[in-house]
Simulated assay, not measured.
Amino acid sequence: MTDSSPLAAKPQVLVWSNPWHNLAFGFGSGLMPKAPGTWGSLVALPFVPLWQLLPGWGYGVLLVLSMLFGIWLCGKVARELGVHDHEGIVWDEFVGIWMTFWLAPQGWHWLLLGFVVFRVMDIAKPWPISWVDRHVHGGIGIMLDDILAGAAAWAVMQGLVALLA
Rank of each mutant, 00 (worst) to 15 (best):
I71A: 15
A153I: 11
V48A: 04
A124V: 15
N18Y: 00
P33Y: 12
W16G: 07
G107C: 05
R79L: 12
L113R: 04
M1P: 08
F94N: 02
W16F: 11
D146L: 09
A152M: 15
W72Q: 06
K34H: 07
I147S: 00
D3L: 14
L164F: 15
G28Q: 07
L113E: 09
G150H: 06
W57G: 04
L45K: 07
A44D: 07
L68H: 02
L68P: 08
I140V: 14
C74T: 02
L81I: 03
A8T: 08
H84S: 15
L103K: 12
I147A: 05
D133S: 03
S5C: 10
L81P: 05
G26I: 01
F27N: 00
D146I: 11
M121Q: 09
P126E: 02
I97S: 14
D146W: 05
N18S: 14
G139D: 10
F101W: 03
G26S: 02
A9G: 04
V156Y: 11
C74W: 11
A153Q: 06
M157Y: 03
G56K: 00
G75T: 12
D146A: 14
W72N: 05
V64K: 13
V156C: 06
A124D: 14
A9E: 12
V116E: 09
A9F: 09
A151W: 13
P46W: 04
P49L: 08
F47C: 12
A24K: 01
M1D: 07
V120S: 07
F94T: 03
W91C: 10
H86S: 11
M99R: 06
H21R: 04
I71H: 03
G107N: 02
K76P: 00
G30D: 01
H84M: 10
V13S: 11
V120D: 00
D146M: 12
G139R: 13
L31S: 13
L163R: 09
D3Y: 08
A149R: 06
V117M: 02
M121H: 03
P36S: 01
A24R: 00
Q52V: 03
G96Y: 04
E80H: 07
D92T: 02
E93K: 01
I147T: 11
L53H: 09
W131S: 02
Q52Y: 00
G26W: 12
P126W: 09
L111I: 09
G70Q: 09
V156S: 10
E87K: 11
V61K: 04
H109F: 09
G40Y: 00
L50K: 00
S41E: 11
V77C: 12
A78P: 07
S130W: 04
L45H: 09
L113D: 02
A78I: 08
L50S: 04
V156L: 13
W131T: 15
W102P: 03
G28R: 03
W127G: 03
G141P: 11
V13A: 14
H84D: 15
L112N: 00
L160M: 12
F25E: 01
L50V: 12
P49F: 08
L50I: 14
L111S: 01
D3M: 10
V61N: 04
G159W: 06
L148S: 04
A153T: 09
G58K: 08
